[in-house]
Write a protein that binds this DNA or RNA. Structure first.
Lengths: 129, 129
DNA sequence: CCATCTTATGTGCATTCTACACATAGATAA
DNA sequence: TTATCTATGTGTAGAATGCACATAAGATGG
């Protein structure tokens, strides 16, 4: 019975839209490109980052104006599409970070209830109707 | 330019897969039904919970064996489909909570970098290549 | 007793994000 | 020249969720 979890609805606790802010955060520190960003994303819970997902996301981000790109051929190996964060991108990152704080509070709420320390609101008296 | 964020990819920091654990957490405290659970979900960042989404999720959860339901007609008003958490459901909730801890660590990582306190790993010397 | 409001449950369709599989191609090394 | 590594992509599918709409039982008011 415990298998059912894994088969259909395993706890994938990656928040929606993580990829974008993680990319932006990295690009704020140094310019980079898809292949490198893929490794970088590992630190944020994207264990087996798929190339396709990442590259498509980067293209989309450029369309939205939060990053810019240009080809780099100077280094050895195949050409790299180097990405830079834009002003709009930095603004977006700030916006996202604020929203994330709210999200963290929701997680706290969840844990407080989960660990058995209720919220001391009137809803609580309803227990076991 | 700042509008572009809202138009396409506004920071929707509603986590993915929250709905299921929030329902399970509530059902662990008291048996409930869709209409009531909808209001309950508000406390976890589902501001305008849509009925359709919730009811469909509940049905799916029953199919997976993490909740059970039966009609209740005793109370006034239309019949309610009352839901109960199963043992598998409680196990799933525990599993989810563990995964959530990992997620919290990822968020910490993100915030540490965002607020400018780097992780003191060797990657950091790469800055501005 | 008829309309309509509230409670309550549901379906259909679209979108967004992501996963998975596969394709392309330059550089390098055997 | 074949294989391998680096690097970038496309095509397709699926899951989670949103939005709009449908259904129906009971309560309420005229």
């Amino acid at each position: 019975m415990a298998d059912k979890q894994d088969s259909k609805r395993g706890p994938e606790v990656k928040p929606r839209n993580w990829l974008v802010p993680v990319i932006l955060l990295t690009l704020r520190e140094w310019n980079s490109y898809g292949y490198e960003l893929m490794e970088r994303a590992t630190a944020f819970g994207f264990e087996a980052m798929n190339p396709g997902t990442l590259y498509r996301t980067l293209r989309q981000m450029e369309k939205e104006g939060i990053v810019e790109s240009s080809w780099e051929t100077s280094k050895g190996g195949p050409a790299r599409r180097m990405y830079t964060i834009t002003d709009a991108g930095e603004a977006y990152l700030d916006f996202w970070a604020k929203a994330l704080e709210q999200y963290q509070r929701n997680m706290d709420t969840f844990f407080r209830l989960y660990t058995g320390r209720p919220l001391r609101s009137e809803e609580n008296d309803k227990k076991e109707e």
